[in-house]
Each structure stands twice: as structure tokens, then as C-alpha cells.
Design a protein around this nucleic acid. Structure first.
Lengths: 235, 235
DNA sequence: TAGATTGTTAATCGATTAACAATC
DNA sequence: TAGATTGTTAATCGATTAACAATC
């Protein structure tokens, strides 16, 4: 019927856009709280150092409609972005791997306001089982299927060592997890239709380190050149 | 003199490439340990699900040279990648903000093998000062300039609440920090020549949540359609 | 009305992928 | 030698930025 399938939804939205949506949410939330009733893309762009055209395109992709000359209704736009992200009511999640990073994430309260509500944690270490970490119960990993059977949990957070990531991931998918937030430094193999978001600190460190190394090397070289020149003039 | 300034180094290397280098390192390290003397881009690509041409281009950008038909010397290539990243001897770093995330990072041993050696942590909370977290001493934030004056530390890790990120960042830069790894959910304003690597979990959650929300909504719609059809046929 | 702002189409830019000659 | 693999140039693809008409 419709010539352009404009409803193909998420598949068409570029990932860079999806990554920026939280920033818009944050700015809109603040502006709404400050009582700013209407907002333009130029304003938002200034706050976030983004091209206003890009802001407009991003908002449009997430379904926002503004009025020429007027802009967008701040509060309504915020609601719409939150709704698009699914952040208006947080989804339940489980976390596997109660090491130092896992523990830190369990204690991170703001997740509740960003769509993720961790209801249970799992670990293979008997020392950790049965306890509570930041108020969240820790169970033996073997209990995972049992619990997921009873609760409709769609998000799994992986904070296990690299070697255990794939088997734990398989187990999670088998028991109904649809989206994985993977903090283990390994690529996961998953069937079609499963969402994987990798959060690999080492990749970021690659950018940081190589830039810093290049910067410092460049300075060293300049220093040496300067010294060489000085040597020349004094000799 | 030189028509193409081929030495402009880091500026020309795309960030996606820099992000992939750690993955190459990891694979090369493993292969070298397994005694594989030579390796081809096709092999590396298979391990990481990357196009072999892309692997070749990335390696070339980091300065690697291979031999046609033969490939690259595994060990030498690994060394070269490590060297390019500056990971062969870790640089000292300080961390500010000993909350749950900061504590987790302080306890994360592998950083030492990935170019980052955290030598001290800082916090404004007197409860935390004077103690040691995972063997790393925690000082009052006011002592930061003093310590950085004596030690040449180039990397600063920011794990403070959003509101404090900018002032702490300013302080760090003033005392000689050149590269910031920012875990606070705010954009930092820094002078030219300072490297900032943002690590904002909420941006990633934006991708995860919106994809999951779209997926589940799509299924809901299908379910409803199916139910409607069933209703029709039974009526 | 005049000017700012949206919505949308076109141009640019950069990264990925394909093609192919050189070579061990 | 023959075939695999590098190095490099060209083609494709996708995201960002620019241009401009519509409009409140």
C-alpha cells in the first residue's frame, strides 16, 4: 500500500543519533525544570556543541514535530524522547558477575531513571551468593533460568571475565534475555534479533593512549630539535 | 620540502581505527602465545568479524608493514601495535572521585597492561582521605596540585558527579594533566591540545534502550494484530 | 510584516568496501 | 610457477553539513 515504508522504525535510525538522544533528554529535562516552555534546535545545539541541523534531524527521527518560528514545547519534547527511549518506565534487568565492576554498577542508582532496573545479580562464587549488594540479592548462577522463568526480564548485564562471557551470554539468551549490555572485553556471538551493546573500556583506552603517545612523542621530538639547535649555536 | 606531510601522525588516523587497535593487540597477543609465527589480515579479520581490507588498512595506518603472500610476523606486529598505543610501558595516572565507580576502577588490575598505572586517588570526602583503596592511597583533592608538581602524571581519570566534573577538570589541566578519561555524564570544555575521552554509560543505554523498546513494541503490535485476526475468524 | 525556525532536499565529507596490480 | 597476500587506488556507502522553501 504505502510506497515508502516509513514505519520500518529503528532499523533506519543511525546509531550515532541513538547515542545522542540521552544528551537531548538531559538538556530538555534541565530546561523544563528551569521553566523554559519552548526550545529551538539552535539552543539545544549550543548546549551540547552540536550543529543545529543535526539536532533537528535527530529529533525528527525520534518522531518529534516542531512549529516553524516557534520551536518545540520543552516538556512535550522531553516526554517524547523519554518515551522513544523507553525510559519512562524502567525495564527489569539482571546482572551476572559481581566483581568490582559489577558491584559498582549494582550501586549506581541513576540507572533507574535511565530505563534499567536491576532486580537480581548472579555469581558462581559461593562466597557472594545469598548476600545482598547495595540492596540487590545475589544468587548462584544456576538459579538464573529459574528466576527468569518467573519474571519477564529482557535486559542482561554482563560483568564477568572474558572467558565466561560467551557461555553466560548463551545461557541468558536461552532463558529469554533480549538485550545484552556487555562489559566483558570480548565479542559475543548471538542469534539474529538479540541486541548487544558492547562497553569495552580497552577500546576507549586505545584512543586515549594513542593520542597521548603521539602528543608526547611529538613534543619530545620538538624538544630534541630545539636542543640540537642550541648545541649548534653554542658550538 | 616534502610534498605530502606524511608524518602528521595521529591527526590523520580515523578514530574508529584507533578504537580497533586494542582488539588487534588482544588477538595478536593470543596468537603469539599459541606459537603462531605469522598471521594474515584474513585470519585477524575472521577472529574479530572485520573485513580483511579494513584490518590491513588499520595496521598500515599504525605503521605495520607486511610481506605479500607471507603476511605479518605475529610477535613483531604485536610489539608494534603496543608501541604505537604506548602500552609497552604504562603511564602514570591519577583518579578523582572515589565513589562506587571510582573504587571499581581502582581495583581493576588489567589497566596496568593497557597503558594506565593509577598512582593516586583523590576525594573531597574526609571519610575517604588517608585510606587506601585496593592498595592505592586516597588524598584530599587539595593535595592534587602538590602531588602532580612532583610527579609527571599525564592522565587524569574523572569519576566525580556531573556537577564537579568541570571544576575538577580545570584543576587537573592547570596542574599538567594532558589527557582526561571522563566518566562523568557531562561534556567538558578544555583548551586546545588536551585530549578528552568520554565514557558516558547513558549514551550507550540510549542505543540499548531504544532498540529494545522498538523491538518489544514491534512484537506487541504483531501480537495485537494476531489477536485481532483471531477475533475476526471466531466471530 | 519581517525574521526566525522548521522540514526537507542536495552537497560534502569521511569511513568502509571493492578492485587490482605488485610480489614473495 | 601458481596462488595467496600485501599495498594502494577507486567505488560505495552512510552520516554530517549546507541550502532553501514553507510557515508561524
Amino acid at each position: 500500500m504505502t510506497p515508502q515504508p516509513k514505519n520500518s522504525a529503528i532499523k533506519g535510525i543511525p546509531e550515532p543519533t541513538l547515542r545522542r538522544l540521552p544528551n537531548y533528554c538531559q538538556v530538555l529535562h534541565r530546561l523544563a525544570r528551569e521553566g523554559v516552555a519552548r526550545v529551538s534546535c539552535t539552543q539545544i545545539g549550543n548546549e551540547l556543541n552540536l550543529d543545529p541541523t543535526q539536532v533537528r534531524k535527530d529529533l525528527a527521527l525520534a518522531g518529534a514535530v516542531g512549529r516553524p518560528k516557534v520551536g518545540y514545547e520543552t516538556e512535550a519534547l522531553f516526554q517524547q524522547m523519554e518515551d522513544f527511549l523507553g525510559w519512562n518506565n524502567a525495564r527489569d534487568a539482571v546482572l551476572v558477575g559481581v566483581g568490582s565492576l559489577g558491584t559498582a554498577l549494582l550501586g549506581y542508582r541513576p540507572f533507574n531513571r535511565y530505563g534499567v532496573n536491576i532486580v537480581a545479580a548472579f555469581d558462581t562464587n559461593p562466597m557472594k551468593q545469598g548476600s545482598e549488594v547495595h540492596g540487590i540479592p545475589v544468587f548462584p548462577l544456576l538459579k538464573l533460568p529459574n528466576l527468569l522463568e518467573r519474571m519477564k526480564v529482557h535486559i542482561g548485564i554482563l560483568t564477568v571475565p572474558a572467558e565466561q562471557a560467551q557461555p553466560v551470554c548463551d545461557l541468558m539468551i536461552m532463558t529469554g534475555i533480549r538485550a545484552l549490555w556487555n562489559f566483558a572485553p570480548t565479542a559475543l556471538t548471538v542469534p539474529d534479533g538479540i541486541i548487544v551493546q558492547n562497553e569495552n573500556l580497552f577500546n576507549s583506552l586505545g584512543v586515549l593512549s594513542s593520542k597521548l603517545t603521539a602528543l608526547l612523542r611529538g613534543e619530545d621530538k620538538k624538544d630534541r630539535a630545539r636542543q640540537a639547535r642550541r648545541q649548534e649555536t653554542t658550538s
